[in-house]
């Protein structure tokens, strides 16, 4: 704790200084120079190059053939050419893999290419995605398994829970939903619609109620009705607010208290999210012991490559992916399919 004080002191002093300097430099306002609205910076968004055409960078031809067919025919061996390297880098960056993971892939490729460029990239990416993806459905004897869903706003937590509830019900389980998002207006209504559709039980409270108490009540209901599993929703929260993360910590504690047992904490991530997903994962891992990721909205043009960085750096595996609106569009994550779609043109 030695350095803590110094940091605190610096923060305080720096804040004061900022405010003071600002108040000091207030002078009569000069109108900002009015520049003409800049033209569109980019006329044409470049199409993703394909991995086996070194000149794709220059020609930017969108290819119509399936890249996977061509991958199988690839026979590039030995060292990577400068152009090939650029193409690989571009493909990976455009998939939101991030700068450091992209560099890690390139470093591996620099050690020699044996399976063709695309094949080698595929191999390296699959190597990064090597965690166990099993989901726990059973708690210790006498306890009720709880799946807790966490994430930032607007990633599709409530929808994901609705779809998973349907899956569980279809597999013959008795499901209780806990509408723990007591913050967003009408979030509980949204979950209630899903509960009705899936014929699952739901426990809800009024808006602004304590989320912990909702989950507590849900566990009570689950115990009384001998439910097989509780799926607990939480309010979307940004990952850089200590108070909200503390609240989440508490919610998890409540859910994990006898008779409940949190067997999965699933972080719901939106595939369109960029590098911020990594810090989201880091914060939620620290606050709620995340055991897996649900990657939603993969049916758009976004690739969701940031999950590779998350699995590589934080060891959190993706367990489910959402590829559409329908219930059956929420699927178990298959690394091979995911990598193929990352590399597809």
């Amino acid at each position: 704790m030695t350095y803590v004080l110094v940091v605190v002191a610096l923060v305080v002093v720096a804040l004061v200084a900022l405010v003071v300097v600002r108040s000091r430099t207030r002078r009569p306002v000069l109108a900002p120079p009015v520049a003409p609205l800049p033209e569109v910076l980019v006329e044409e968004v470049a199409a993703r190059p394909s991995l086996d055409e070194p000149d794709a960078l220059r020609t930017r031809l969108a290819s119509s053939r399936g890249v996977l067919d061509r991958l199988r025919n690839l026979s590039g061996e030995g060292a990577l050419s400068r152009e090939q390297r650029d193409v690989v880098e571009e493909v990976l960056l455009r998939s939101d893999l991030g700068v450091s993971t992209t560099r890690a892939v390139l470093e591996q490729l620099d050690q020699g290419v044996h399976l063709g460029v695309a094949g080698e990239v595929r191999r390296v990416l699959l190597e990064f995605l090597d965690r166990d993806r099993g989901v726990r459905l059973v708690a210790d004897p006498g306890r009720i398994p709880v799946w807790l869903f966490v994430g930032v706003n607007g990633v599709g937590k409530t929808t994901t829970i609705g779809k998973l509830a349907q899956h569980h019900v279809d597999e013959g389980r008795h499901v209780v939903l806990a509408a723990g998002d007591t913050f967003r207006a009408a979030a509980a209504d949204q979950l209630a619609l899903w509960a009705e559709r899936a014929s699952a039980d739901i426990v809800r409270a009024t808006e602004g109620a304590d989320p912990g108490s909702v989950i507590h009540d849900a566990l009570g209901r689950a115990g009384a009705r001998h439910a097989d599993i509780v799926l607990a929703d939480t309010a979307g929260r940004r990952a850089n607010n200590t108070n909200l993360l503390d609240e989440l910590r508490k919610v998890r504690r409540v859910a994990d208290r006898d008779p409940g047992q949190v067997v999965e904490t699933l972080l719901v991530l939106d595939a369109t999210t960029g590098q911020n997903a990594l810090s989201q994962a880091r914060e939620f891992l620290a606050a709620a012991e995340v055991t897996g990721i649900v990657l939603t909205k993969l049916d758009g043009t976004a690739r969701g490559g940031i999950v590779v960085a998350i699995e590589r750096e934080l060891g959190i595996p993706v367990k489910f992916v959402g590829v559409g609106e329908r219930v059956e569009d929420l699927r178990v994550f298959v690394p091979e399919d995911f990598v193929d779609s990352l590399l597809a043109p």
Binding site: V42, V45, L93, R94, S95, D96, V152, G154, A271, T272, T273, G274, Q275, N276, A277, G300, T301, A302, R303, I306
Partner: peptide, 14 residues
């Protein structure tokens, strides 16, 4: 548009 969007932002906007 969401400030945390990644590379896909251009496709959306376009």
């Amino acid at each position: 548009i969401d400030a945390v969007t990644g590379q896909d932002a251009v496709h959306t906007a376009r």
